[in-house]
Design a binder for these strands. Structure first.
Lengths: 247, 247
DNA sequence: CGCTCGTTTGATATATTTCAAGAATTGTGG
DNA sequence: CCACAATTCTTGAAATATATCAAACGAGCG
C-alpha cells in the first residue's frame, strides 16, 4: 500500500494493533475501511445524547470529551479523548446515544459507517478483538474514574487526572509524561473531576505551591513523577497500556 | 436439546439473545460451552485485583459486586451484579484484573474458560455481538454512575441507585419494579454511592419519611414509581434494556 | 484598544464526614 | 429454643471539605 504511512486510518491500525496484534492483511483491511473525514471546531458536537449515530468516530487530531447533564443542570465529563481514540463505538453499536460527545479543541475526525465496523469486527477476529479490547479498556478507565470521583479528595483527585493525561499523552506521542499541553479550561477540568471550577483552581494552585507541578497557561509540568504518582494514588495498570512498562 | 430448559447456561443464552438475537444453532453452541459450576459463600472473592483469571464468570444465583480500594483505604463499589450477569469478561480478556469481584450473598457461578469465550465470540458473530453489547452496556452504566456520584446530591443519588436496581431486578425476574429484596448492607450501599454509611442511613430514612419508599430490613418498596423517578433524576435509557419499553 | 472569556481571590454557607455510643437485629453454640 | 456475640442500624454533636456568591484581575483576540 503506497499510502500506508500517511493514511488517516493508520491511527486506527496502530491502536488496534496495540491491543491485539494484527496481520498485514488485517492492517490493509482496516485501511480499506470506508470513511469520511471531517473538520470540527472547538465546542462542536460529534454526537448528541439521544441521537442514532450511523458512524463510529476516530479522532485524527484534537481533543474531545464525553459528558452527560444531570437534572439539576450539573454537567459531568466522563472521559477525555485524543488522537487515535475511537469515540462513539458505544453509541453507534448500541443504537441510541446515551451521552454527548463534544470537541474540546478544533480537530479532525474520521467517520466510519457502523456496518463496516461490525463487518470487519467479525470477518477479522484480530480486528474485532482489538475493538473489543478498546471498549474493555475504556470500561476500566470508567471504573477508575468512579473510584477517583467517589473516594479521593480534591488534591489527590486532580493529581490523578493529571497523571492519567500524562501517560496517555505520551502513549499517543502528544507530549512527554512529565510535560504536556492540554487545551482544557479549569471549568471543564472541574466537570471531569466533579468539583467546582473555583475549587479546581485552588487545588491546582496548591499542587503548584507544594511543588508537584508547574504550569503556564495550558501547559502542565509534573516536576517529580514519582512523588506526584504517590500523592495522586496513581497506579497506571488500569490503563492497560502495552508500552515497555515504563514507570 | 433435552436439557435446554434447565441448563445453567440458558441464563447466558437469554442475556446474549436479549442484546442480539441468536439462531437456534447459536443457542445450542452457547449451551455447549465448557464450564464448571461453583458455589460461593457471601463475602467470597470471585477475582482479586492483580489476578490473571482464566475464566469468565456467569452468575447463576446470588449477587456480586466489583470494587476497588483507594490508597487512603476508601472502598468504592463500581457495579452490582445479579443472576444472568457476566462478570469478569473484562478481567479475563484483558489478562490481568484491575479490580476485585466479591459475592454480596451466597450464590452459584459458572466458570467458562476464556479461550472458549474468545472462540465462540468470533466463530459465531451473533454470540460475539451479544457479548460485546454486554460490555458496552456495562460501560454505559459506568458512565451513569460517574454522573450519579459526581453530580447528584445524597438523596437523588441514593434514589437513583434504588431505581436502577428496581429495573434490573425486574428485568432479571428477581422482583417487581416497585418492590424487591436486595441483600446489601447500608455500608455497602454507601460504598456504591460514595457516601458514608451514616449518611446513607439518614438518606434512606428521609426517603421513607418523605413517602418515596418503604422498607423492612432488606426489602425496598417504591411507593410511586413516577414520583420516585422524578426525584431520582432517573431515566432508564442508559440501561439499554430491550423490554417492551415500559416506563 | 477594548471586550470577552478564563483565572484568581475572599467571605460565607452547607452538605457530608467524623466520632462515638446506644438500640435493634441476626447469627450461633449449647 | 435460649443466651450471648456480632453485625448492622440509628441517633447526636462537632468538624471539615467543598460549594456558593461575588467581584477583581489577566490574557488572548478581533
Amino acid at each position: 500500500m503506497s499510502d500506508s504511512r500517511t493514511h488517516p486510518l493508520n491511527l486506527l491500525v496502530r491502536k488496534l494493533d496495540q491491543w491485539n496484534p494484527l496481520s498485514d492483511d488485517d492492517c490493509n483491511a482496516v485501511r480499506a475501511l470506508p470513511f469520511t473525514r471531517r473538520q470540527l471546531k472547538a465546542g462542536e458536537h460529534v454526537v448528541w445524547d439521544g441521537d442514532r449515530p450511523q458512524n463510529a468516530c476516530l479522532i485524527l487530531s484534537g481533543f474531545a470529551y464525553r459528558y452527560k447533564v444531570a437534572g439539576n443542570g450539573g454537567r459531568q465529563i466522563m472521559s477525555i479523548h485524543m488522537k487515535g481514540d475511537i469515540v462513539d463505538l458505544q453509541n453507534s453499536l448500541l443504537g441510541v446515544a446515551d451521552h454527548n460527545v463534544q470537541m474540546l479543541s478544533a480537530g479532525h475526525i474520521a467517520l466510519i459507517p457502523v456496518e463496516a465496523v461490525r463487518d470487519i469486527a467479525f470477518s477479522r477476529p484480530a480486528v474485532g478483538m482489538g475493538m473489543w479490547y478498546e471498549t474493555l479498556v475504556e470500561g476500566s478507565i470508567f471504573r477508575e474514574w468512579i473510584l477517583n470521583i467517589g473516594r479521593r479528595n480534591a488534591i489527590v483527585r486532580v493529581g490523578h487526572l493529571l497523571c492519567e493525561f500524562a501517560m496517555r499523552m505520551e502513549a499517543s506521542e502528544l507530549g512527554k509524561q512529565t510535560e504536556y499541553e492540554l487545551p482544557i479550561t479549569q471549568e471543564q477540568l472541574a466537570d471531569a473531576v466533579a468539583l467546582t471550577s473555583v475549587h479546581v483552581n485552588r487545588t491546582l494552585m496548591k499542587l503548584e505551591e507544594l511543588g508537584y507541578i508547574s504550569r503556564t497557561r495550558r501547559r502542565i509540568t509534573i516536576n517529580d513523577w514519582h512523588k506526584m504518582a504517590v500523592l495522586a494514588d496513581f497506579q497506571p495498570r488500569y490503563l492497560h497500556l502495552r508500552m515497555d512498562a515504563r514507570n
